[in-house]
């Protein structure tokens, strides 16, 4: 696949943002309008040069996401009943159990999807939301890369909820064995949904505004 370069809209050789050019861009359909236009004439989406409330929404969703993640780890995810024993496993107990049985591969998948990704995502969103307010040492490109990873990878946490769904519908063998979902599945699903909403609320254009501010000049002084 070949990439085609596009002419920069500004007369200078620098890449300019819509905001710097006195324009406002539609996030939905990428059409550009003069600053101050309130609604996109093409798709009807509300236009905001930068969403001032974006960070507040990010933090609100982030907080409920984190709060839901705590009971998601304390309550059992799965209730397994066989002829003789009934066992309840939290997410981490489930991972340990799998590893004990020698299923290292799946133990790893569940650990990554249910522990590493959610916690990594909480940290990454918090870092982005904090760093966007100050000109840090981290490069803009790195922060943007982090944002893209967070947006892309967050959905994959749902794997464990789906595994619970499949197991508890499939393993229903009357007296022999049965599997039922535990309350953690609800909190976990909510946590994933809230963190996705948190990431979506983040206005990634703000990451690039830091570059445009005279931060570099200050560094020379």
């Amino acid at each position: 696949m070949q990439m085609v370069g596009m002419e920069r809209a500004g007369q200078s050789h620098q890449i300019l943002s819509a905001r710097q050019m006195g324009l406002v861009a539609c996030l939905r359909c990428t059409r550009v309008w003069p600053a101050g236009t309130s609604e996109c004439g093409r798709c009807g989406h509300r236009l905001r040069s930068r969403d001032a409330l974006s960070l507040q929404r990010v933090w609100a969703w982030w907080l409920v996401g984190v709060i839901c993640y705590i009971p998601a780890n304390l309550y059992p995810m799965l209730r397994t009943r066989t002829l003789f024993i009934t066992s309840e496993d939290t997410i981490l107990e489930g991972v340990v159990e799998l590893a004990h049985h020698g299923s290292y591969g799946i133990a790893l998948v569940i650990f990554v999807a249910s522990v590493l990704i959610p916690i990594g995502k909480f940290l990454a969103i918090a870092f982005l939301a904090i760093s966007v307010r100050r000109t840090g040492r981290q490069s803009t490109r790195m922060r943007h890369g982090l944002y893209e990873v967070v947006e892309y990878i967050g959905r994959w946490s749902m794997i464990d909820v789906f595994v619970v769904a499949i197991l508890s519908s499939l393993v229903q063998l009357k007296t022999l064995a049965s599997v039922a979902p535990g309350p953690a599945s609800l909190f976990f699903a909510l946590s994933v949904i809230f963190t996705m909403l948190s990431a979506q609320s983040f206005d990634s254009r703000m990451i690039w505004d830091l570059d445009a501010k005279p931060a570099r000049k200050r560094a020379h002084v």
Partner: peptide, 24 residues
């Protein structure tokens, strides 16, 4: 402004240059 396009992720503005099919 109809021939301009803005990047939804970083707000950079370009003049639209339509790539050939299969290119981007």
């Amino acid at each position: 402004t109809s021939d301009l396009i803005a990047c939804a992720s970083c707000d950079a503005v370009y003049r639209v240059a339509r790539p050939d099919y299969g290119e981007r």
